[in-house]
């Protein structure tokens, strides 16, 4: 900018805007001292509310996803243990396993206000031998049906609210037959 314009700019800067009226100061003071009321003039705009909602919703989906993944791992672990049963009882059985979930990942990734997975329970309430199974080869196999109820629990550490989800699950295994 050339010299005369810079001089003129300085002249403008020296011009002071009018002082605030005392009634305006009083109005601002009384509004700031008043208890906060959500009204049209101070309400967060729609975009920020919508954004907050979307973020919360995705946080919830994330929490459910983490919990579900952990539950699947827990179920697979339990299933592999159950395969070690050498004898198949003829009558129904009921067993339960509760796995406390201690996932550091879940603790660090989720916000304070999110639900965190705390337990995955796996109840075997019926195990039924459904007879010989036809498979390729000459080994004798039997078909066994395991019936479970899987229960997953999430907890919100801030207000101690909990969410429990129970779902039935059938598992059919074909196992080597034992005749002795």
């Amino acid at each position: 900018m050339d010299e005369p314009l810079l001089e003129f700019e300085e002249e403008l800067k020296a011009l002071a805007p009018r002082r605030l009226e005392s009634r305006l100061m009083d109005r601002v003071a009384s509004e700031l001292n008043a208890p906060m009321v959500v009204n049209s003039s101070v309400r967060p705009n729609g975009a920020s509310v919508a954004k907050h909602f979307v973020v919360s919703r995705w946080m919830s989906f994330g929490a459910i996803g983490v919990a579900a993944a952990f539950a699947v791992v827990a179920v697979i672990t339990l299933s592999s243990r159950n395969e070690k049963l050498s004898r198949l009882p003829a009558q129904s059985v009921a067993t339960a396993k509760v796995i406390p979930v201690q996932s550091k990942f879940a603790e660090t990734v989720l916000s304070d206000n999110a639900y965190q997975p705390v337990a995955a329970a796996n109840v075997l309430y019926e195990m039924k031998d459904e007879g010989p199974a036809i498979v390729k080869g000459d080994n004798s196999e039997r078909r066994v049906r395991y019936r479970y109820v899987d229960t997953y629990t999430w907890k919100n550490p801030r207000n101690n609210a909990s969410l429990t989800w129970s779902v039935p699950r059938d598992e059919i295994r074909v196992q080597p037959a034992q005749f002795n």
Binding site: A16, P17, R18, R19, L20, E21, L24, R27, V28, E31, L32, S41, V42
Partner: peptide, 29 residues
């Protein structure tokens, strides 16, 4: 800083009174 903000508000309003209302609302928010 209020006086220069009021001057700024005045550019987008029809009167000083409107500018004061706008400034009050914006500052409180």
């Amino acid at each position: 800083h209020g006086p220069s903000l009021l001057l700024c508000a005045r550019q987008w309003t029809h009167s000083i009174a409107d500018a004061e209302d706008v400034l009050q609302e914006a500052f409180v928010r």
